[in-house]
Design a protein around this nucleic acid. Structure first.
Lengths: 143, 143
DNA sequence: GCCCCAAACTTGATTGATTCTAGAAAATGG
DNA sequence: CCATTTTCTAGAATCAATCAAGTTTGGGGC
């Protein structure tokens, strides 16, 4: 968990102005991986008082475009954000409750990056989502 | 491309009543892989005349639940549907125009199904999306 | 072949995440 | 400290998708 001044350095490094909403959003995303936009709005407001949802949307887009955070959005879920951007990792999503956990790559750093037939596409990145059942839902279902 | 009576057999096999909207939707999805809901509504109406969008949504959900078609929805895209359901294949998506192409699995039939750390999740399926640039957008960008 | 009823369809309204617009506020460079 | 440019606020608008209530229809049973 970086310090406030670290967040400031991150923002400046990405050529972004340092504003309180931005630091708060960045902090919230670092603190709560895979949080959806609504939760982030809640966390930011708890931190700063009233902040418009529009500002949070804007900040999330700016941070995503700058590569400081990553946006993930499995089918049937609203947009979620996480702070792990440098490494190549994937996600496990619970079909029952929608919980998300990180899953590191099984093989090397850029796995599965080769499709057998790419239809002429220039492939830049492979995104993997593992669908399954989380421990909580598994125990709830078996009881 | 199955015949109309084949579609009927598919529907009956899934314990679904045979209605004109259902045959038309099924046919449209077989004919145009990766079409979005709106395009499908258009194709069905061209075929049958006026059909409510609600009916198409209902049919698409019923067919998806029955496993006759598959719903795919990459980030930033609306829901799309395809008829290839039995095999385990993945998708290549163009970052520029959103075009989707099929990509067969590089290794075996159920590849990448092993995460190195599954966080206790019971993993059922791995979904892979390759992000890149399609041939059309690549040539358009280089000119 | 006809009738019944559950399933499917129509119409119209509603939701809810996200985006747009115009104006006010605030952060950086000079 | 001021000017300029970016960012934030407030409120309306968009659009895919869902919900609700009532009508129609497919298909098994008579």
């Amino acid at each position: 968990m970086p310090t406030p001044s670290e967040f400031e350095r991150l923002l400046r490094g990405a050529d972004l102005r340092v504003t309180r909403p931005r630091v708060a959003v960045l902090s919230a995303v670092y603190d709560h991986a895979h949080a959806d936009t609504d939760s982030i709005i809640g966390m930011v407001r708890e931190d700063l008082g009233e902040v418009s949802h529009q500002a949070v949307y804007d900040v999330l887009r700016a941070l995503t475009a700058a590569g400081l955070i990553r946006r993930i959005q499995p089918m049937g879920s609203v947009a979620r954000y996480e702070s792990r951007v440098a490494d190549n990792h994937h996600h496990v999503v619970c079909r029952s409750c929608g919980a998300i956990a990180d899953a590191d790559c099984a093989v090397g750093d850029t796995p599965c990056l080769t499709a057998s037939d790419d239809s002429g596409f220039a492939i830049e990145e492979a995104e993997v989502i593992y669908w399954g059942t989380c421990p909580d839902c598994a125990t709830a279902a078996s009881s």
